[in-house]
Nucleic acid binder design. Structure first.
Length: 575
DNA sequence: GCCGTTTTCGGCCCGACTGTTTTCAGTCG
């Protein structure tokens, strides 16, 4: 059982318990444990082998015993008993918006409905309105919920949502210029994927802002519009929710609507212990209302330092904020160069000179041209002969752009047998070697892990590119054992990449954090295949920030000389 | 079922909205 399967299982148990009508806190305990395991960044089985399950937040004696049973036998008797009480079909009804545990149970016990399709049919026959507590309106809402379930698209990558949000905020600003406008929700936290785009604005006349928003040319359909809230669908199909409030409530509201939910719950528990009640309007102490015009004031009143949105996942940031040990997160401005990008020599759209000029415009000190190597034929990968020709061109371009240190690297194929595309003596002549897996991604865990380890142990290899190989929404991560990879990187001093392509963001946030804990350095690279692709770096930086990365953990915050010295210390390449 | 900056037992987040209701239950974020 891997982490994902265990997380799914725990969430299913939580749903079943809720449908059964178990005390809600038991349900919440399972959900909390599931979230905690989801963001663990390492294989739970390893934690179990080390006998440290209890150190995972949200895992107590009872869950430790259940997880132990799962790992030992691959089964869980408790779950199997629950399944007999609550069929999987009932749980599946929870996917319908408007249907919660109580309604699901009702639909099952009174009508025997066990699938979304059966509920749809029953609703169309007018059977739901006869149930106790439901009426005609509820029946219509459930039908509408099923409709939206059918047409609901998957979560969209951060890199798709972000530019759309920026454009919308500019358009709203031009139309009516509210006092404040800001992203909220998972977008502000820079999660790798986003459900809906959440925006927040502050203005005296809130209704004027929602009205102006609904009239923006980007809007295709207005789902709902009131004085403080508007929900729309854009022409590109994305849903956007805008909330507008009066300026004195800005801080509390921004905090509240940024989430995450788990983070907010933890803050409220903290408030309660101090005799306060916290909501999106501010604090309340008895009859006294305490508005918070800024987010800082919300945290300050709780005795906490302001927490960067990327950390607000209830993964230990609240304790860190209390104890003054929040990380000083790496910023885009601290990045001094890009170590992985492509040119027209392989499958890039821009020439070396165009990329160099674009890098200078972004204030970089150095740039590593790291085109594909020959095994990756589809990408026009370079033979060693072409590498030498490219080196001559790099020298010419370097002469034209003296302010930029132009380095020659390569994204070298790790072949199916674990060997690399160039022999060591040639790798040694490159400034930076990124080694990547592009083929054999479906190999068994042991085999593909062995390939990656072989590459990491080669002293000429500096960076492991997009380690997991996942493509968000398209391809699962390979069976690569990232725990092993992180250990090997820690031993050998190899660097792990955070690839900034919006579909990759690989390493992900949880593994960035795990790598940093293990003392591994990371490189945040654009893997750009065009000039515009360089700008994806912000998403890689965001992912690293979500993994608690500081500048000291990120090699491309170093100057060129320091970076090359670091690479040279490790082994063959580097100058 | 978890957990300890008032607790190893008794707590465990807040408000809006909606619908079926005469004061509340369910769902959602």
């Amino acid at each position: 059982m891997n982490n994902n399967e265990i997380v799914d299982l725990l969430r299913q148990i939580a749903d079943m318990l809720e449908i059964k009508g178990e005390v809600i806190y038991k349900t919440l305990a399972y959900r909390r444990a599931a979230e905690s395991i989801e963001s663990l960044g390492r294989d739970l089985r390893e934690v179990w082998q080390e006998g440290k399950l209890r150190e995972v937040p949200g895992v107590g004696a009872a869950l430790e015993a259940k997880l132990d049973e799962l790992f030992r036998t691959g089964r869980l008797a408790y779950y199997e008993r629950l399944q007999e009480e609550v069929p999987a079909g009932v749980v599946s009804l929870l996917a319908i918006p408007e249907v919660g545990p109580k309604t699901a149970r009702l639909l099952w016990s009174k009508l025997g409905l066990l699938s979304v399709a059966e509920v749809e049919q029953a609703a169309k026959q007018g059977l739901l309105r006869k149930l106790p507590g439901l009426g005609e309106r509820s029946e219509q809402r459930i039908l509408a919920g099923i409709e939206s379930l059918y047409r609901r698209s998957d979560r969209i990558p951060l890199g798709v949502a972000w530019p759309v949000a920026v454009e919308l905020m500019a358009a709203l600003d031009a139309a009516i210029s509210p006092d404040r406008i800001e992203t909220a929700g998972s977008l502000r936290r820079m999660r790798e994927t986003i459900g809906d785009i959440d925006l927040l604005a502050a203005a005296k006349d809130t209704a004027a802002v929602t009205a102006a928003f609904a009239r923006l040319p980007q809007v295709a359909e207005v789902l709902g519009q009131g004085p403080t809230k508007a929900s729309v669908v854009l022409h590109n199909g994305l849903q956007v929710d805008l909330r507008v409030l009066e300026p004195p409530h800005w801080g509390a509201a921004l905090q509240y609507f940024t989430g995450s939910q788990a983070h907010n719950v933890a803050l409220r528990e903290l408030a309660q212990k101090q005799g306060l009640s916290l909501s999106e309007y501010g604090f309340r102490q008895g009859e006294q209302e305490i508005a918070c015009p800024t987010e800082e004031e919300v945290y300050e009143r709780l005795g906490l330092a302001w927490v960067p949105p990327e950390l607000r996942e209830d993964r230990g940031e609240i304790a860190a904020a209390r104890e003054g040990r929040l990380p000083d997160l790496v910023t885009l401005a601290q990045i001094k160069g890009d170590l992985h990008l492509h040119s027209t020599w392989s499958d890039g759209a821009a020439t070396v000179a165009e990329m160099a000029e674009a890098a200078l415009r972004r204030g970089y000190e150095y740039l590593v041209i790291s085109d594909h190597t020959h095994s990756l034929g589809v990408a026009n990968g370079l033979t060693w002969e072409r590498m030498q020709a490219q080196r001559a061109e790099l020298a010419e371009v370097q002469a034209r752009f003296p302010a930029l240190r132009l380095l020659q690297g390569a994204e070298v194929e790790i072949k199916a047998d674990g060997s690399l595309d160039f022999p060591d003596e040639l790798l040694a002549q490159l400034d930076v070697v990124v080694a990547s897996l592009h083929s054999g991604l479906r190999q068994e865990g042991e085999q593909i892990t062995a390939r990656a380890l072989q590459a990491l142990r080669n002293p000429h290899v500096d960076i492991l590119g997009h380690p997991s190989g996942r493509l968000l929404g398209q391809r699962e991560a390979s069976a690569l054992d990232l725990g092993e990879v992180i250990r090997a990187a820690a031993e050998t001093g190899a660097i792990l990449e955070v690839n900034s392509i919006p579909d990759r963001l690989d390493l992900d946030d949880a593994h960035v954090r795990e790598a940093i804990r293990a003392g591994v350095r990371i490189a945040i690279n654009s893997d750009a295949h065009s000039v515009a692709g360089l700008d994806s770096l912000r998403y890689g930086v965001a992912t690293a920030r979500r993994g608690w990365a500081e500048a000291a953990h990120v090699v491309n915050t170093l100057g060129a000389a320091e970076l090359l010295a670091l690479l040279a210390r490790r082994g063959g390449s580097g100058g």
